[in-house]
Design a protein around this nucleic acid. Structure first.
Lengths: 102, 102
DNA sequence: TCAATAGTACGACAACTATCGTAGTTCGAC
DNA sequence: GTCGAACTACGATAGTTGTCGTACTATTGA
C-alpha cells in the first residue's frame, strides 16, 4: 500500500519550522549532502553518525518542516530538497544557509 | 561596574546557533521588531508575551548566538542587530529570514 | 538616603527532543 | 513462499529549553 508520508503544502511551510529543522548539526549536514549530490538520493545513502531510527526521526523533522520531500521507490525512500518551494516562500534563505561556512 | 555581557566574535558565530536562535517565535518576533525600528532600542521597549526573566533568557540566547549586540546605557540595555557581522558571515541569511512572511 | 526603574541570576518545573533498541512493514530477489 | 534490505513505529531515557517566580544589582531621581 503505497501510502505516502505526509508533506506540508508550500503555503503551509512555516519559517520557524524550517529554521528549527536546519538548526540541528545532523540535519544540516544531511541537507548539505543532499544539496551537494544534487539529485535525489536514498535516505540511507548519506552517512550520518546516528542509528537508523534516529536518522528516521531527523528525516521526519526535515520532511514535516517542508525542507525535503520523500518518495518511495522500491524498498528505498528517495529524498530531495524542496528547493522550488523554499525559494518561492523564503527567497535566498536556502542558499544562504547552504553556502555558509561550516 | 560596567562589566559588559559577553558576545561572540564575528568569526565565532556558528550557523547552527543563529538558526536555533531565530527558530523560536518569541525571539524571531523580537528580532523583527528590532529590524523594523531600525535604531537600537532598550530591551524592554519591545513588547513580548513573556515575563521579564523569560525575556532576559531569550535575549541571552540571541546575544550568545551573535544575532544581537547589547550595550549598557544607564539602567537600560540597548539591543541592536549585528547586521554587519551576520551579513559578512552569512550573506543574505538575515534578509531572507526577516523578509519572510509571518 | 530612599524609592523606583531596568535588567540579570538562580532555582524549579514541565515540555520538548535527540538518542537508542527492538519490533514491525514493505518490497525485491532467490 | 522465504529471506534480506530499507525504512518506519513505538517505547524509554537523558539532556535541553522555555517558562515562571523570587531575589539580586545597578543607575537615576526626588
Amino acid at each position: 500500500m503505497s501510502e505516502d508520508l505526509p508533506h506540508p503544502d508550500r503555503a503551509e511551510i512555516r519559517i520557524e519550522a524550517v529554521l528549527h529543522a536546519l538548526a540541528d548539526p545532523v540535519r544540516l549536514h544531511y541537507v548539505r549532502e543532499l544539496d551537494r549530490i544534487g539529485t535525489g538520493v536514498a535516505c540511507g545513502a548519506i552517512e550520518l553518525p546516528v542509528t537508523k531510527s534516529t536518522r528516521t526521526h531527523h528525516l521526519r523533522t526535515l520532511r514535516e518542516a517542508g525542507v525535503i520531500r520523500m518518495r518511495k521507490e522500491g524498498t528505498a525512500r528517495i529524498a530531495t530538497i524542496r528547493r522550488d518551494d523554499l525559494d518561492a516562500r523564503y527567497p535566498g534563505l536556502l542558499n544562504a544557509v547552504l553556502s555558509a561556512e561550516s
